[in-house]
Design a protein around this nucleic acid. Structure first.
Lengths: 351, 351
DNA sequence: CTGTTAGCGCATTCAC
DNA sequence: GTGAATGCGCTAACAG
């Protein structure tokens, strides 16, 4: 196997000591021009790659501890944001040999005041990096401005926000998500049937950015296919199982031609369960994300498929990127990391 | 963060030295009963987890080198087995700090003689572990018997073989694969149309084990749905693009009711391209694995979807498991590792 | 049998 | 400015 270049090897090749090479690699200054030139000459031939785990064990000795603040909406076990949290926790376990101090700060995703207050608190906290679940745009922009001022790096999960400078953002391509939902519905629902696209009913607030993009992309697909007239929009109470069930039952009674239900948010299980209980047959239901509720409905057969944005992977990668940045001051990859999008049926559901 | 238990910590807690703990963890013997008991007492409370990368750097010093032989069918760039190889190479790069000597030995997947000769050669080789791409059953059993005799551990990718004892096998659930193919075809093809299931034409040899399971599972789905009469089996020349194209064109001309084509092997692109060129419209084509050819056809629109078995992940995990076994004498997980199955449409194809 | 020791790649401190 | 020295978790040889 091609062995990587080590700091020691570079030092030997450049005729200096390991300490000097380290200073150059970390831009710590205090290096003579000759030494710098010699090292750069070596690095021209072969590029150096840090060994993250060697860095980790070396850091343990120094006693340095990084405070990472993670602020995301709270959610019940198995719900969307909890899946993101799972991925974060998994990364923290895998990189357990780093001395990290993690502080979770949760807020209410349906309440912009809660978000604002939480973010104000974070602006005053002393920390090395922040991982932010993007929900409310203005509040996030405000927080980021504060962090920028203090020079604290931040990372996004689940979305992007204009006028911010995250070191990296991890999310799925929402346009592709909406289009894929449309394509699957188009395929599974007979050509002469109608298709309902379901949105969350919100009081006061607008549709979230992600949902809006999915909806637009969904409708756009059917426009291209000249099947747009078959698409009916319907809003339901996404935070109330009983109400949601009653609403969808009533809707289906009034719209018997509807044979497909596309839910643009992660609570499709509220719908699919009610559809089955109400006795409607031959209706294809699709939604987003392998939450506990959705997975259960897929397994039981009431939900036909979901489009999975890998929330756990988003969380995992965000931690990895944060670590990489804290250690080496760079992010490995481009600032926008698009997560793969999975389609999950009963047959390929992971138990 | 919860830091892991280290060897040194165990030693302190058990009142012995690190060397003794190491001997216990590695079953190297030469430990008194008291010391053993003390260490086991500590390990009862908290379980120990090796730090693979610390092991790696420590091993470098010893100069020990592991010879790993990898024997899989040769294939063109971007074809199925090359994707497995990519995953293997990726793992070798990631674990580049281990001193591994890798030797690839390729054989012809369509020629059992080539396989037998290759495997005879491997039986005589001096190596630490073998990763085997399972294709021909008898030949594989024979090789495994030889390796068992010499005490050399082996690992499978892409399948399992009866009467063998691999330390781990990495593959997708083939029954689920076949069923998923059926379900997608059932959904996308109108209820009154026919569906063709395509198999490779083979001279002398039977259908490969994986293909046979997929086919049976595919047919079984339609039997359950009482739609079995709509399924037509058809064999094509999977190793000859021109011939394959002519065959499928002729088949579609004779069977105008066929509106769905399900290819049970990884060369669907040979079919979808020909279908498009021949001018047949509204035919849904699905197949297996994100090979270069299939990915291109998905992008261009001639192929509707593929079911991806993550060949790269299979290869990656096989190397990881091999390393883990060589270092610690155990495999992390159960012997059979089922890979996730992805569904890929144009919208969620990774470029 | 067992503790000690050296050194893997790395970051950092401290003499020089 | 710089190199030597230290120790992180780990392995293995070695001396007792």
């Amino acid at each position: 196997m091609a062995q990587h270049l080590t700091i020691k090897q570079i030092a030997t090749l450049a005729g200096v000591s390991a300490g000097t090479v380290d200073r150059v690699l970390h831009n710590r200054g205090k290096v003579s021009e000759e030494a710098l030139a010699a090292i750069q000459a070596v690095l021209k031939d072969q590029s150096y790659r840090y060994n993250l785990h060697s860095s980790a064990i070396a850091f343990k000795k120094t006693g340095k501890v990084w405070n990472i603040v993670i602020t995301i909406p709270f959610s019940k076990k198995g719900e969307y944001w909890d899946l993101i949290k799972s991925g974060i926790d998994q990364a923290l376990a895998e990189y357990g040999d780093f001395s990290l101090k993690i502080e979770y700060v949760f807020f209410d995703q349906f309440n912009s005041n809660s978000c604002r207050e939480t973010f104000e608190k974070i602006k005053k906290m002393d920390c090395s990096a922040v991982i932010i679940g993007t929900t409310f745009v203005e509040e996030t922009q405000n927080l980021c401005k504060g962090l920028d001022k203090k020079g604290i790096p931040y990372f996004f999960v689940d979305g992007k926000v204009t006028d911010t400078k995250p070191k990296a953002a991890f999310m799925a391509n929402q346009t592709a998500c909406g289009r894929l939902l449309a394509r699957l519905m188009d395929g599974f629902v007979a050509d002469d049937a109608e298709i309902a696209v379901l949105l969350p009913k919100r009081i006061g607030t607008q549709l979230s950015n992600n949902s809006a993009i999915r909806l637009a992309s969904f409708r756009n697909y059917f426009k291209e296919k000249s099947r747009d007239s078959a698409v009916k929009e319907f809003s339901f109470s996404a935070d109330n199982e009983k109400k949601a069930g009653e609403e969808i039952s009533a809707f289906l009674k009034e719209n018997p031609a509807v044979k497909g239900i596309a839910v643009v948010i992660s609570t499709a299980y509220l719908i699919s369960g009610a559809v089955e209980k109400s006795g409607f047959k031959g209706i294809c239901v699709g939604g987003f994300d392998a939450t506990e509720g959705n997975s259960r409905c897929i397994r039981e057969g009431s939900l036909d498929f979901i489009i999975n944005q890998h929330p756990d992977k988003q969380g995992f990668n965000a931690v990895e990127a944060t670590l990489h940045y804290l250690l080496y001051g760079t992010t490995d990859s481009s600032a926008d990391e698009l997560m793969p999008i999975d389609i999950v049926f009963k047959e390929n559901l992971i138990p």
